Amino acid sequence: MTGSTRLRPDVVLMEIRMPDLDELAATRELTMLPAGPRVLILTTYDLDEYV
């Protein structure tokens, strides 16, 4: 993990709609860290089927 282990944030704001990244896998990795941060997920999707 890059900056997350170096900075040790308490909270991460994660947008799940980003090009070229697997945001859900990144969220899973962050939450599995010992004393990992809380992750707040947001998105710009407005259709319930995508959420």
Score class of each variant (00 low, 15 high):
residue 24 L to P: 02
residue 27 T to I: 15
residue 30 L to Q: 04
residue 23 E to C: 14
residue 2 T to S: 12
residue 20 D to G: 08
residue 11 V to A: 02
residue 4 S to W: 02
residue 36 G to E: 00
residue 15 E to D: 14
residue 47 L to V: 02
residue 22 D to M: 06
residue 50 Y to M: 12
residue 48 D to K: 09
residue 10 D to L: 05
residue 25 A to Y: 05
residue 5 T to S: 03
residue 33 L to T: 04
residue 35 A to F: 10
residue 2 T to H: 11
residue 6 R to Y: 10
residue 3 G to S: 06
residue 8 R to F: 03
residue 34 P to Y: 04
residue 36 G to L: 06
residue 40 L to M: 03
residue 21 L to F: 14
residue 7 L to K: 11
residue 2 T to M: 11
residue 24 L to D: 03
residue 35 A to W: 11
residue 38 R to F: 07
residue 32 M to K: 14
residue 51 V to Y: 05
residue 45 Y to Q: 07
residue 29 E to W: 04
residue 47 L to T: 07
residue 48 D to H: 07
residue 3 G to A: 06
residue 23 E to Q: 15
residue 41 I to T: 05
residue 30 L to H: 01
residue 20 D to N: 12
residue 49 E to L: 11
residue 29 E to D: 14
residue 28 R to Y: 04
residue 24 L to Y: 15
residue 41 I to Q: 12
residue 50 Y to L: 15
residue 43 T to S: 15
residue 8 R to N: 02
residue 39 V to F: 00
residue 26 A to L: 12
residue 7 L to E: 04
residue 47 L to G: 00
residue 29 E to V: 02
residue 11 V to H: 03
residue 5 T to R: 14
residue 43 T to D: 07
residue 14 M to S: 01
residue 29 E to Q: 13
residue 46 D to E: 09
residue 40 L to Y: 01
residue 13 L to Y: 08
residue 24 L to S: 02
residue 40 L to Q: 03
residue 47 L to F: 11
residue 6 R to F: 11
residue 35 A to C: 13
residue 8 R to I: 00
residue 22 D to Q: 05
residue 42 L to W: 01
residue 21 L to C: 11
residue 6 R to L: 14
residue 22 D to V: 10
residue 21 L to A: 13
residue 26 A to I: 14
residue 51 V to N: 00
residue 48 D to G: 04
residue 33 L to R: 03
residue 5 T to D: 10
residue 32 M to H: 14
residue 9 P to N: 00
residue 36 G to D: 00
residue 45 Y to I: 00
residue 44 T to H: 13
residue 10 D to V: 12
residue 43 T to M: 02
residue 18 M to V: 10
residue 36 G to C: 08
residue 17 R to T: 09
residue 2 T to C: 06
residue 23 E to A: 15
residue 37 P to G: 05
residue 1 M to F: 13
residue 32 M to E: 15
residue 47 L to K: 08
residue 41 I to D: 01
residue 49 E to G: 08
residue 49 E to M: 05
residue 15 E to N: 14
residue 32 M to N: 14
residue 38 R to H: 09
residue 13 L to D: 02
residue 24 L to N: 08
residue 35 A to D: 15
residue 4 S to E: 01
residue 50 Y to C: 10
residue 41 I to P: 01
residue 40 L to K: 06
residue 49 E to K: 14
residue 49 E to F: 13
residue 23 E to N: 08
residue 34 P to K: 13
